[in-house]
Amino acid sequence: MSSSERSGNSNGRVAVVTGASSGIGAATARSLARDGYSVVLGARRVDRVDALAEEIGGRAMYLDVTDAASVERFVGTLDRVDVLVNNAGGAKGLAPVSEADLDDWRWMWETNVVGTLRVTKALLPELEASGDGLIITITSTAALEAYDNGAGYTSAKHAQGVLHRTLRLELIGKPIRLTEICPGMVETEFSLVRFGGDAAKADAVYDGVTPMVAEDIAEIISFTASRPSHVNLDQIVVRPRDQATSRRNIKTG
């Protein structure tokens, strides 16, 4: 039996993590598995999630949140979901509005906003049926403020945050909790993707700063999932000590 088909010992509760091939997603999968969840890992890089599933005793499946058919296939394999961690997302480019690349904008909106919508909408019945569902959406401090040259990403993250916050209002009275986690600077592959694989540009983002790491956010996610069913952590904003704002033209550390 392959790692994509088996799950290890668990507390009977199932956690789905999107964008689980690296960074916050991978760290979250490990953390929730340690907490006793049967973790289902979704990502496009199947080789990575297969290896991680083997490590933690979870299940790995291909998932492209920008592809409706992929989401449908992924959701069709699930008969129980207690926790959904909407982590898939990302940024491309750092251009002013006057030089905006429309393809980059489309990718950011399709991945961060529509992708989150597709997965969340599809899993709402299972989350409600669990009797104590939890949706955790990883947005960003970019969902709370704008910064120069970042309109594509900040607008997408604002929209993703509004989607999540609206759903919080719409699900009042149902057994589903919703937590938005807004991280600031976290050193993952995020900047490498944003700059098209340019490692020098990606590394420069963290010059003079001690950023957070993926495990810092994963610990917060595990803590959120451990709260009793009557407690809803609506929004958590977390930044490294050396960062007080997302605006690039103000020294952040």
Rank of each mutant, 00 (worst) to 15 (best):
159 A>R: 09
165 R>I: 02
191 S>H: 03
182 C>T: 02
177 R>Q: 06
141 T>G: 06
159 A>C: 11
156 A>R: 04
143 A>N: 12
169 L>P: 00
153 Y>P: 05
164 H>K: 02
157 K>F: 09
183 P>I: 00
177 R>I: 05
180 E>R: 12
173 G>K: 13
167 L>W: 13
169 L>M: 13
196 G>C: 11
175 P>V: 03
195 F>I: 10
164 H>T: 15
175 P>F: 02
194 R>N: 03
179 T>H: 09
180 E>N: 15
144 L>G: 01
153 Y>N: 04
169 L>G: 05
191 S>T: 05
165 R>G: 04
185 M>V: 12
174 K>V: 00
182 C>D: 12
153 Y>C: 05
162 V>L: 13
177 R>W: 07
181 I>P: 05
142 A>N: 09
186 V>R: 06
198 D>L: 08
176 I>H: 02
182 C>A: 11
152 G>Y: 01
197 G>C: 09
141 T>E: 11
157 K>D: 10
148 D>S: 13
173 G>S: 11
182 C>R: 12
141 T>M: 14
187 E>R: 15
173 G>I: 09
192 L>C: 01
182 C>V: 03
161 G>A: 06
157 K>G: 08
155 S>N: 12
191 S>P: 00
187 E>M: 12
177 R>M: 08
177 R>C: 02
149 N>C: 14
176 I>S: 02
179 T>M: 08
144 L>A: 01
160 Q>W: 01
196 G>S: 13
187 E>F: 00
152 G>E: 11
190 F>K: 10
188 T>S: 13
141 T>K: 05
151 A>F: 08
143 A>Q: 12
139 T>I: 14
145 E>P: 01
143 A>S: 15
149 N>K: 12
180 E>W: 00
140 S>N: 04
188 T>C: 10
158 H>M: 14
190 F>L: 13
185 M>H: 00
143 A>W: 04
189 E>A: 15
164 H>V: 13
178 L>F: 01
177 R>K: 13
159 A>I: 09
